[in-house]
Amino acid sequence: MTSSKQNTRETVFLETIGSERIYYKQLQSLCSTGIVETCGIRSLCWKILLNYLPNNRSSWIRVLEKQRQEYNNFLEEVIVQPGLNRTNGPIANAEDHPLNTNPSSEWNTYFKENSILLQIDKDVRRLCPDISFFQNATAYPCKMLHLESSKVESLRKRIERTGLNSQSLTRKKMGISNLINTRKQAIEEYETLMTQGQEAHWEVVERMLFVYAKLNPGTGYVQGMNEIIGPLYYTFASDPNPKWREYAEADTFFCFTLLMGDIRDNFITSLDRSTTGIDASMRRTMNLLQRSDPEVRSKLDKIKIKPEYFLFRWITLLLSQEFPLPDVIHIWDVLFADENRFDLLIAVCVGMIMLIRKELLEKDFSGCVKLLQNYPEHIEIIRVIQEAKNVYKTIHPGS
């Protein structure tokens, strides 16, 4: 793109997002090819596209104050030791104690939750290893941990106290497909920062995921959710405006919750075979591939490559494991901007397959599986998006 065109797009973006009333359709159209990086407004655009912020700017302060206070309330409600409440200090209940095995015991629930916390801790300590961001200290550690009136518990201390062993919650389909791409795993786990009062960004993510798991017991925490919240938090916590960065934790939590409201069925095993589950999404993708490139579909069927081997991870994690983080963020710009974003996600998956069709037609079973589970790095993300748009038009001709 020429410099003049880039400057024109930047100007239009800034005018659109700076208006007192933001026209949603216009913002969607602008973001549909990616948000101009130099504008510094990506996190704001995402908040609007995910329906966290209304399109009327005058109501933002009221909405944000309410949501951020609500998040603080969540912290005080769900990250607190048994035997304490927010107003009265220790609760006099001699019948409930750490050795109580009664299912209704707060202490019994507390210890069961430790296994969930330890799994979250394990996952976030290896989040987005291709950048150093999550290992670094946030300039805005949780204030609730240091208020004298607050009973919010430090998850760091809670993890240090427990000696429980956690089991991996990695979901596998057909014994081959793993949620986590080995190419994007950290060699070593991130360390806890030792300076008093400091928190690494991965610790902030850990807290958000633990709060989400406690507030959503039907879903809980499933490995892979860390890969969804990671790019959201990175985008919000990297906002050039310090006022937005300061509240990145609360804003990310609510945007993550809104996004999970759309994709949560992919994380619930009991819904795999439902019309909204991951199996249905994979089936739709393969049907679209049949329409778009029947030769490749026939080849995959012939050598018995099941969609579970690669599509399970692609769809469930919104492609966050298949590309470097900047490319993932670019794809998410496009996905969030579309009202039918999950139709577009399926089109992206089909487009990715079509871009490597030559290699797929030449390779055997093991070669194809390796290629699909480790998508070639040399393919530019703009080509993926362009191919996806072409495929998408076969689903939504007027787009």
Results as ranks from 00 to 15, higher is better:
S274K: 09
E359G: 00
I278D: 00
A388R: 00
M286V: 10
K122E: 10
R62S: 15
Q135P: 04
W107A: 06
I356G: 01
K304N: 15
V152L: 07
R9W: 12
L271S: 05
Y190E: 11
A213V: 06
K143I: 06
R383Y: 15
S29I: 10
S104Q: 11
T394F: 05
H330N: 10
S366G: 10
C142I: 04
F267A: 02
V78G: 00
A94N: 08
V152I: 03
S399F: 14
R273Q: 14
I228C: 12
R68A: 07
H378R: 11
Q135D: 10
H146D: 04
T275G: 08
Y233W: 09
K243L: 13
N108S: 14
H146E: 05
V391Q: 05
A139N: 09
S270C: 14
C349H: 03
G398N: 15
K214F: 05
T16D: 01
G218I: 06
E322L: 00
V296M: 06
E20A: 12
E95N: 15
G277Q: 08
M225Q: 07
F13R: 02
G261I: 01
S166G: 05
K243W: 00
D343R: 13
I278W: 03
N165Q: 14
L64I: 15
W46N: 00
S238P: 13
N114S: 07
S150V: 03
P240V: 06
I22D: 05
I263W: 04
L318R: 09
L209Q: 03
C39N: 09
Q67F: 14
N390P: 01
Q196F: 07
H146Y: 08
T316H: 07
V350R: 04
Q321L: 05
Y190R: 14
I278M: 08
F312G: 14
N181R: 04
Q373C: 07
R62Q: 12
I395S: 10
N241H: 02
N93G: 02
R125W: 09
T16A: 11
Q67V: 15
F312Q: 13
N226Q: 08
L318V: 07
F256C: 05
T170N: 10
C31D: 01
K151M: 07
S270Q: 13
Y309D: 05
I22A: 04
Y375N: 03
V348H: 02
E322C: 03
V211G: 01
A337H: 02
S132Y: 01
D239V: 14
Q198T: 12
T33V: 13
L361I: 07
T2C: 06
N73A: 01
S115N: 10
S166T: 12
L75H: 02
R171E: 08
